[in-house]
Simulated scan of single mutants.
Amino acid sequence: MKRLLIAAGGGGDAIATAMVHAALHGPDEPALVLTYAWERLVVDPVPGPRRPSDFTGTVTAGPTLRLVTPRSAPRPPAGSLLPRLSAGLRPALGLLDPYAGASGLARQIEEAAAYCEAGHVDVVDVGGDILADGTEPTLRSPLGDALVLAACARTGIPTSVHVAGPGLDSEVPEAALLPLLGDPLHTLTHADTLSVQAVFDWHPSEAGALLVAAARGIRGVCGTRDAPHPVTLGDASPHVYRLTLARALEINPLARALAESASLADAERASERVCGFSEIARERARAAQLAQEAGESPGGGTAPSEPRPLPERFAEWERRTADSGIAYVTTRRIAEELALSPAQLTSLRRHLSTASPARHTPPLWRLAAVEA
């Protein structure tokens, strides 16, 4: 028997789901985490979620359910960190395929429950956009979470919905979420992060990194790459809250609108009606823009003969960032805003850790202004 969990938003939610599972039930309890292979374009240049046919080496666990293992691999040009993540997390990972809408996801969840011999489902979302009402101006990715709620309702399997780190994904503000959440079920601690800490040496999840930082006691203004405004880690940031599935559906109109969806196209249209946009359409537009920019980049431009040393570039960037009121930053923000290659990022991390060990507060980085 295994406990069955669902990482509602895909991407880094699988990491947080493994951490919440370890905190609530112990790291050694067998578990299966269902998750989307729906990752940022920096990881997967193909817009939208991946499906089983986009991978090699998956393991059949039901007629439509596939498990991702360390031997799995995305088929180019698609990209995915799930195979590597499956090696770094203790729970097994199952792939959610939303291309048949909520009805298809419901079949996969039912197959997973049979595979695990589980009579209950635990849904986990970092940040709380699973409780979005669709009108939030900062809402960016409501579709995956809402599809999970709709699918769980179709199965009839008893389901609990967990929100970890309210507001940490910068989609629904913490102030809007707290009145909906009630008392916390659990407060994550440093010990709860031990089972996932090594993953953040390479995984770009920012909401997950902020949740781990909050559990480790970090408080202050944090700058991420994928949000319009900084996030403030406060007393509620390491909390985990539990709601009934019925309550989550009551709050989330998109989930209710997806109840009869039978395709991802149906789901996109529902998102456009309820929220005014389709995040997949936005991904398509962004991917096309990136491809155009890459095509327009001069192939033989003149590079500076003596490029500025990386520590000097970082120091200038750090001063500007700290002046904006930010105390901590994610590794992803450093890498993307300085346009660092993996080798350059490794070199910079080594330099910063050696020159000022207190600067690294895993999985975040403390800006120099805070050290004084």
Rank of each mutant, 00 (worst) to 15 (best):
L181R: 01
G134W: 10
A236F: 00
V43Q: 06
P27I: 00
F200M: 11
E318T: 04
P228R: 05
V274G: 05
I157R: 02
D13T: 10
P304L: 13
H360D: 09
G101C: 10
V46L: 08
A191W: 03
A153L: 02
L181A: 09
D323Q: 15
P52W: 00
L4V: 12
T321F: 03
T302S: 14
L243I: 05
A209R: 02
A153D: 06
F55T: 06
A281M: 03
G217L: 06
H239P: 00
V161Q: 09
C116D: 01
S237E: 02
A78G: 13
R333L: 15
A281N: 03
L89A: 11
S160D: 15
T155M: 06
T135P: 09
T64I: 00
C152Y: 01
L82K: 02
T17A: 15
E268H: 07
R269D: 11
G276I: 07
L105G: 08
G48R: 01
V274H: 07
T69N: 08
G301M: 09
G217M: 07
R71W: 08
L149Q: 03
S305Y: 09
T361F: 02
G128N: 10
P52N: 01
S353D: 14
A87R: 13
A369P: 01
E29I: 01
S86R: 09
A176L: 10
A23G: 06
T302Y: 10
L139Y: 08
A335P: 06
L81T: 03
T361I: 15
A175D: 14
Q108W: 06
T232E: 12
R140T: 05
P238D: 05
G94Y: 06
T321E: 13
L147K: 06
T35S: 08
G128D: 12
L194I: 07
E117P: 00
L85M: 13
L210F: 00
T35I: 01
L131D: 05
L41G: 03
G128C: 10
G104D: 04
P70H: 02
L24K: 12
R319T: 14
A61E: 03
L367G: 01
P27L: 00
E136Q: 14
S261C: 13
T17R: 07
